[in-house]
Design a binder for these strands. Structure first.
Length: 198
DNA sequence: CACCAGGCAAGTA
DNA sequence: TACTTGCATGGT
C-alpha cells in the first residue's frame, strides 16, 4: 500500500515518535508546523530550544515528553552516525535495534517502525491493532507480549520489507474499521471458549 | 459529557 | 517481576 506517510526517512522517525498513543490526524498537524518552521531535519530539530520544539508539536499531545524524545533521537543520530540518516540506514538490523532501544523514548514499536519504514529493514511492526485483532480471534492469549506477536509473524512469513509493510497497513486499516476498543461480548461466539480468550 | 488514539518510562510493592 | 500512573491534544 506504499503506506507510511512521509516525504523523507527523517520525517518517518518524527512521525513514529509523535504517533505514540496518538491519532495520526494530530501528528499530521504537528508535522505541518515543523515543515512551516523549516526545522524538519536532524540539525533543525536538534538546534531548537526544547520549549520552542514543544510548542510546534503541541497538537500531537504529550508535547513536552515528545520534544525530549525527538531531541534524544537527534542527539543519538549525531553522536553515533554523524547526523546522517544514510549512515543509520546502512547499519546492521539487530545491532541497530539494540542501539535504538537504548534511546530514551524509543520502545519496541517505535524502534521497529524506524527500522522498517525509515531504514527499510525486514522487521515486523506490532501495534495495538495487531494485538487486538489476534487476541480477539483467539490466535494469541491477551497476555501475549510484543516479542511473542512479532515472532508469530516473522516465523511464518518471509523477511521482506514490502510484505511486512503491507501486513502492518492492512492490520491497522482493518482494526480501525472492525476492531472496537472495548471488548464486546458476542454471546455464542465459539472463540469465547478458547484458552485465555476473554 | 465520556471515551479514544499506530507507547513509553518511572514509580510502587 | 508485575502492576499502576503520568503524559495532553483534538475528534467522535
Amino acid at each position: 500500500m506504499h503506506w507510511w506517510p512521509a516525504d523523507t526517512a527523517f520525517e518517518v522517525i518524527i512521525g513514529a515518535i509523535l504517533t505514540q498513543n496518538t491519532a495520526w490526524r494530530n501528528v499530521a498537524l504537528a508535522i505541518t508546523n515543523l515543515k512551516a518552521a523549516g526545522v524538519i531535519t536532524p540539525a533543525g530539530v536538534n538546534a531548537l530550544a526544547p520549549d520552542k520544539l514543544a510548542q510546534l508539536i503541541k497538537p500531537s499531545g504529550y508535547y513536552n515528553i515528545k520534544a525530549q524524545r525527538l531531541q534524544a533521537f537527534t542527539r543519538f543520530l549525531q553522536d553515533e552516525f554523524s547526523g546522517s540518516m544514510d549512515a543509520l540506514a546502512a547499519g546492521d538490523l539487530e545491532e541497530l535495534r539494540g542501539k535504538l532501544l537504548r534511546v530514551r523514548g524509543i520502545g519496541p514499536e517505535t524502534a521497529d517502525s524506524i527500522l522498517l519504514y525509515a531504514c527499510e529493514k525486514p522487521i515486523f511492526v506490532v501495534d495495538a491493532y495487531t494485538k487486538r485483532i489476534l487476541s480477539r480471534h483467539g490466535i494469541v492469549p491477551t497476555t501475549a507480549d510484543y516479542a511473542a506477536l512479532q515472532n508469530l509473524f516473522m516465523k511464518n512469513l518471509p523477511p521482506r520489507v514490502g510484505l511486512y509493510n503491507q501486513y502492518h497497513a492492512l492490520l491497522v486499516n482493518t482494526g480501525k474499521i472492525f476492531c472496537t476498543p472495548k471488548q464486546e461480548h458476542c454471546g455464542d461466539c465459539p472463540l469465547h471458549n478458547m484458552p485465555d480468550h476473554s
